[in-house]
Each structure stands twice: as C-alpha cells, then as structure tokens.
Design a protein around this nucleic acid. Structure first.
Length: 399
RNA sequence: GGAGGAGUAGCGAAGUGGUCAAACGCGGCUGACUGUAACUCAGUUCCUUUUGGUUCGGCAGUUCAAAUCUGUCCUCCUCCA
C-alpha cells in the first residue's frame, strides 16, 4: 500500500464538513486523530516526565529544530529524537519558522488572536531575526551568537534530530503585515517549500527510518493567497501539511476551509500552535487532524486552570478544598489535590514545591486538552460531532 | 545605672529642609499568555473615586516650608557596669 512507514488512514468523516477521524502511522507508532501533540521544545515537556505524558494520554511530542539545532549531532548519534529524549512515541519537529516571526517582526510581542488594531511589528533595527531569500539571519538570545538558518539548514537539522514528522521551513507573518508583504513572504515560503523538499529527500532516511515532511501553508487572512498556495503545495510531494499563520479568532475556520478544500484528502494536516477548545473544535471541523500549543503548559505555570466551564486562576480560589475540576480524570485530580494545596505549592518559596505545582497544573491542563481531542474523535466516530461541539462550546464559553 | 545605634506604607529598605504620598525590592491583588527569549509579562498596592485628606514612633517647637532641624517622651538593639 505505502512503501513508506508513514501514511494516513481516514476512519470516518464529519458529515458535510472537511473534518475526519483517522490514524497517522509513523515509524515510532500511531497517532489517532484528531490529536493534540504536547510541546517539548527541547525534547521534554516542561516539568513533565515521560511517564507523566503516558499517564495523561499524550500520543505525540513536538520539538523544535531551532532550539535543538546545536544538539542535533548528539541526537543523531543517539539514534534520533525518540531514543535521545526517552519519548518512545511519535515525534514532530518544527522547522524554526515560528522563530522567524517571534524573534523578528513579533519580537517582544504577544501573539494574540483577538486584537489586530494595536498590533505593530517590531522595528527592523530592533529585530533579532532578519529574513532574506536565502533564509534567516538571527541573533540567538541564549548563546548571544549570530547564526543563520535557511531551508537547507533546517532540513539538515531536522533530519539529524530525526522526528517522525518534519515541517518545511516557512515564514510566519504577523497580523500587522500588509497584503503586499504577505504576497512577498508567501512567494518566499513557497520557494523555501521546494528547497525544503529537495534537501529533505537527501537525508530523510539517514537514521534508518523514513522521516516525513509536511509543507506549511501561509498566506495570512486572504482567500486568494490561501487557495493558491494550497493548490501549489498540494501538487508537491509532501507527506502532509502544516496549517500556519497568525489568525484572527473569527477568521480561523474560514481560512482553514479555504486551505483544506484545496488539499488532498488523504494527507494529514497539522494546525500549528493552537489549542483553545474552540480552536480545536473549529480546526477539526474544518479538516485539521493534529494540533500543538504551548498554552496549556505555560498557562498552567502561570496559574490558569482549564475546566469544562471555562478557565479560572488558582490564585482567585486559594482556600478551596475542591479539586481543580470535580470529576476530572487527570493524575492531579485523581490524586486528590485540592485547590488550596496547589495554591500553597505555587506560592511556596521552596523551588521543589513550586515545580511540583508546575507539574501538577500542567498535567491537568494538558489532560483537559487531550481528553477534549479524545472525545472529539469518539464523537466523530459516533457521528455526533456537531452536537458534541455545540455542547462543549456552550459550557466552556457560557454561550 | 552608663555609652552608642535605631524607629519610614503589610514586610524589608531608600530618602537627612521645599521638585515627598514618599524610590526600590518582597509580599498582596488584577489581568495577559496560542508552531516556548515565557518558573514570564503588564497594571495595581495609605485613605479618598475631588486640582482632596491624613502620614514617615508620640508630643511640643523652629521655619514661608519638616520624613528630614530642636526639645522631650516612648520602644527596640549593641556594648560597658
């Protein structure tokens, strides 16, 4: 059927929509979709052990080629990301495309889906990353060194890291960029896509198993750009697609639809960087199969706790004996931790106790999002997706 | 009993005549966070929602003007008896 150890199997579709439930087969295991991939940028999820990840039902881990670039040879010698990190399941690496934006036009800015009016790009002279046709020159804030990554470098790095799925090197534009700039950036991203594909082919079997490559769709919020780039990349020999971009909340579903209508149905699609419940629900409905996001863990560390009835901050309920969410099946709630106990850990001056809070809160939020994807999957298989979605949104957003 | 030193907002700590409701840190409270420069960031923290009021151990003074100077009292710390 497929001589590569990577393929996507569709099990069931959502009626009248582009969404589906399926299975992505990779050399390191299967991913039942829709699925949320936990973000372990440098090869581990902040404050979670691999055992913790198993316990919360994590299926796959996403790491970052940019952050791991200086360790890629070491990882390669170890046999790849799975061996090296101790995460035995499927893995994915990002190309570093996000850092083009976060260290460049978005330096010091928050990537927000609700505001657009007050979004201003960082001045060119202040940026740590500068884009040109060849790639991205940047200044690494950690090592204080100047460095360069282009499509070829990104592919070489990712192939040494050896995740099961790689992302083409792309340029993520910001909400503040104009149509004209998006045309320019998109052309570059498309040329980089071809260069990524060419370079990837040379190294994709270097570690002894096939490493898949996803092409990344950009194009901002413009239908003509989204559809044309989707058509172009659809004709190229990618194993799947990354749905990229800075989205305005109300545009997300529409943009995904434009893209997914043009993409081949039999290849998996990963929505890059989003994980609010409505994003996942709309994303799934519009054809995205996998997701990743730093928010569940980052927000957990900052005290925001997810529940079916919306989120709250643990600091607003410091004396409660209640669990984070009654009835939750996460390890934290199952172990019987109360909000008061967790608050005490968060506020502790002892580092270990604070870290314990980070661990417990992160597991809760991640489990919440992972359980959401599990339930969505089951609802699709049961043919009840739309009902599930409406009920969930109604409870979560109180509308 | 004697000699020094110190008392500033919840805490720690600047400030030694006006530009002081009083820096800064912590703690507290709000909010933010979406392919992790993110165990981070922003705002707020005497009362009062007024170009207002009451403050810098207490009281009494000096001065146009005091947290800052003088006197006195109280409390605390160190050292000597």
């Amino acid at each position: 059927m497929n001589n590569k150890a990577f393929h996507f199997e569709i099990e069931k579709r959502i009626d009248h929509h582009l969404g589906r439930a399926g299975i992505i087969h990779t050399p390191h295991g299967d991913i039942k979709t829709p699925a949320f991939m936990t973000v372990g940028t440098k090869g581990s999820v902040h404050f979670l052990s691999m055992d913790d990840l198993q316990q919360i039902g994590a299926q796959a881990m996403l790491s970052n080629g940019y952050h791991l670039r200086n360790r890629s040879y070491e990882i390669s010698e170890d046999g790849g990301l799975s061996q090296w990190s101790g995460w035995e399941g499927p893995t994915l690496t990002d190309s570093g495309g996000f850092q083009v934006m976060s260290l460049g036009s978005g330096l010091g800015k928050v990537v927000n889906m609700d505001r657009v009016k007050d979004v201003i790009n960082t001045e060119k002279k202040d940026r740590l990353a500068l884009v040109s046709e060849k790639g991205v020159d940047f200044h690494d804030p950690y090592t204080d060194q100047d460095d360069f990554i282009g499509p070829e470098q990104s592919m070489q790095i990712q192939c040494r890291i050896g995740a099961d799925i790689h992302m083409a090197f792309d340029e993520l534009t910001s909400l503040a960029d104009t149509y004209e700039y998006n045309v320019e950036a998109l052309g570059r991203t498309e040329r980089w896509a071809q260069r990524s594909l060419d370079e990837h082919k040379k190294h994709c079997m270097d570690l002894g198993y096939y490493q898949a490559l996803y092409g990344v769709l950009q194009g901002g919020r413009w239908e003509d750009l989204r559809r044309s780039t989707s058509k172009k990349l659809a004709k190229m020999d990618f194993d799947g697609y990354g749905l990229g971009g800075a989205f305005l909340k109300e545009d997300l579903g529409e943009i995904l639809r434009w893209c997914c209508e043009e993409l081949p149905e039999n290849k998996p699609r990963h929505l890059l960087g989003l994980s609010r419940p409505d994003d996942i629900l709309i994303g799934t409905m519009m054809g995205a199969d996998t997701f990743d996001c730093v928010a569940p863990t980052r927000e957990a560390r900052h005290g925001r706790i997810y529940t079916h009835y919306g989120y709250y901050n643990i600091t607003n309920d410091p004396h409660s004996d209640a669990p984070l969410e009654p009835g939750c099946d996460c390890p934290t709630c199952r172990a019987g931790y109360s909000r008061a106990q967790l608050y005490t850990l968060l506020k502790s001056e002892k580092k270990e106790e604070k870290y314990q809070f980070f661990n417990l809160a992160s597991m809760h939020n991640l489990r919440f999002i992972i359980r959401l994807t599990e339930e969505i999957r089951q609802a699709i298989l049961d043919g009840t997706f739309m009902e599930y979605k409406d009920t969930f949104i109604k409870n979560y957003y109180h509308r």
